[in-house]
């Protein structure tokens, strides 16, 4: 147990306390407080520009927050590069644009992290990689290159790549927004499998069906603030805030 330990009764996997983020004059995050319990699935929704992506990008320090404190697995995110890298290794991230490495084969995409950041021997890494590709149901594509795969397949490889670091938390940044409609479900199914296995997840998405079915909690953001949080049932049937109602009436 480190001195950074933040002792909430069931220890939170992720804890944000009073987090602010500005881009020049634009306030992207405004006093964000959020706690995610182990094995909880939190879906973040909201209009574009509301700070959803910035929120999860602050958790693994792809963006640096200006004020407030962020804890991942009980460790506070600091400016120390080693600390940042350690937290990133415990935090898998899946991007809207997949961001697979085009010069590496699918299997090498998945094993690069374990081999380079965890010093895993090649044989073990390949074994792990194949196991994860089976989990996302594309082991037969292992030797191909990302450019030869469909968008849905690429995003599943990206999920396998993130899982290869054996993370405690998975962050999803609009994982289906860049996909053709017929490929969305294969990615959502892989995410549902993960949720069922008890992965702690924060998912930024516009897939309301997914939110309803999988989320333990829905967080609604607007203008850099968390406007409302609640169970999917509460959120979709009787939202209390006007901004939430307005947003839901536009998309449903």
């Amino acid at each position: 147990m480190s001195a950074h330990d933040h002792s909430a009764a069931p220890r939170a996997m992720i804890e944000l306390i009073g987090v602010w983020k500005r881009f020049d004059d634009f306030v992207a995050l405004r006093d964000i407080n959020l706690s995610v319990a182990p094995q909880e699935v939190v879906v973040v929704i909201g209009p574009s520009g509301s700070g959803k992506s910035t929120l999860i990008r602050c958790i693994n320090r792809l963006e640096k927050h200006d004020a407030g404190r962020i804890f991942v697995g009980g460790t506070e995110l600091s400016d120390d590069l080693r600390n940042i890298q350690e937290i990133r290794r415990e935090t898998g991230m899946v991007f809207q644009q997949f961001n697979l490495f085009p010069h590496l084969s699918v299997l090498d995409n998945v094993t690069l992290g374990p081999r380079q950041a965890r010093k895993m021997p090649k044989r073990d890494a390949n074994q792990l990689g194949m196991q994860l590709l089976e989990q996302v149901r594309i082991p037969e594509q292992a030797q191909k290159y990302p450019g030869q795969l469909s968008g849905g397949q690429q995003q599943r490889v990206a999920i396998a790549r993130a899982l290869a670091m054996r993370p405690k938390v998975m962050l999803f940044d609009e994982p289906t927004s860049a996909l053709d409609p017929e490929m969305i479900n294969e990615v959502l199914d892989a995410m549902k499998d993960l949720a069922r296995e008890g992965m702690t997840m924060i998912v930024v998405t516009h897939e309301m069906g997914f939110a309803r079915e999988v989320a333990d909690r829905v967080v609604f953001m607007a203008d850099g603030e968390i406007v409302e949080t609640g169970t999917p049932e509460h959120f979709f049937t009787k939202p209390s805030e006007n901004r939430t109602k307005a947003f839901l009436s536009q998309i449903l």
Binding site: L62, R88, L112
Partner: peptide
């Protein structure tokens, strides 16, 4: 970003 995210 993808490289950072896996902790390289």
């Amino acid at each position: 970003e993808a490289g950072k995210a896996i902790g390289l």
